[in-house]
């Protein structure tokens, strides 16, 4: 392959290569590989215990990695601490307890920019433009909001530092279908503003329908990958988890 051809092809923003690791002695991840391209929504689906969330946490430095490599924006970030990864341009939204309940919406966003120096007003404007609902509620305590609004606060908080990659761990868990569609729409808006998204989803069918590309994990390893449509049409996958 010539150098020119390599330069013309867009480089992945994130590469996970054959990652093995876990929390204690047992490896939950048995060799997971995936890539995320710039401005792409990539979803990870799979049955319970497949290691979906663990794979995502591995990217964010929350998992002990035994072997393999994680490369972000051309730099090897394997083994970095989460705060260093935040500074490098990845934000992570945990599945539960992802807001400061006793702080206002505005303060939650402010905490998202804790590492930033200088004026934040542009960042606030950007987030409030993305989430008009939040602007109206900016002085409300995050703990008093509905589940969907809380999820918006969590995503908004993660976007304050203008990350290049956003990691979302089951953002629609426990939400009504209406809110689920709203969160997916927000994801598209975020992508269109230039941010790549990697998300883990329990609602496989809906997630594959909206994402750009998907990975199916089972027992800690890659099982299938492809565009959302391809995966949806794969009868094996339909039978595996899509209520087939």
């Amino acid at each position: 392959m010539s150098a020119t051809a390599a330069r013309d092809r867009p480089q992945p923003i994130l590469i996970m290569h054959q990652v093995r690791g876990g929390y204690g002695d047992a490896d939950i991840l048995q060799g997971v590989s995936l890539t995320v391209m710039p401005q792409e929504i990539v979803v990870i689906v799979g049955p319970n215990g497949a290691g979906k969330s663990t794979a995502m946490k591995a990217v964010f430095g929350l998992v002990r990695i035994r072997s393999g490599a994680i490369v972000f924006d051309g730099e090897d970030i394997t083994g970095w601490s989460p705060d260093r990864i935040v500074r490098r341009g990845i934000s992570y939204v945990p599945q539960v307890d992802n807001v400061f309940r006793e702080m206002t919406v505005h303060e939650n966003l402010e905490m998202g920019a804790f590492l930033a120096k200088g004026d934040l007003s542009a960042a606030f404007d950007r987030i409030y433009a993305l989430f008009p609902d939040l602007k109206a509620k900016r002085h409300a305590l995050a703990g008093d909001l509905s589940g969907g609004q809380r999820q918006m606060v969590a995503i908004g908080r993660a976007l304050m530092l203008e990350p290049q990659l956003l990691l979302l761990d089951e953002p629609t868990a426990g939400l009504s279908p209406k809110y689920m569609q709203q969160i997916f729409q927000i994801c598209r808006d975020v992508r269109d503003s230039g941010v790549s998204i990697l998300l883990v989803e329990q609602h496989a069918k809906q997630a594959l329908a909206f994402c750009d590309r998907g990975y199916v994990l089972a027992t800690g390893a890659n099982r299938h990958e492809g565009s959302g449509r391809e995966l949806l049409e794969n009868p094996e996958i339909a039978q595996m988890f899509l209520g087939g």
Binding site: P82, P94, D97, V99, E107, F114, L115
Partner: peptide, 22 residues
């Protein structure tokens, strides 16, 4: 103050505060 908010954040949700770089 910024550090006052960091204290509240630690009290509220220490894991998330660490994710925010506190």
């Amino acid at each position: 103050s910024k550090w006052g908010k960091a204290m509240r954040a630690m009290s509220d949700n220490p894991d998330l505060a660490r994710l925010c770089g506190v």
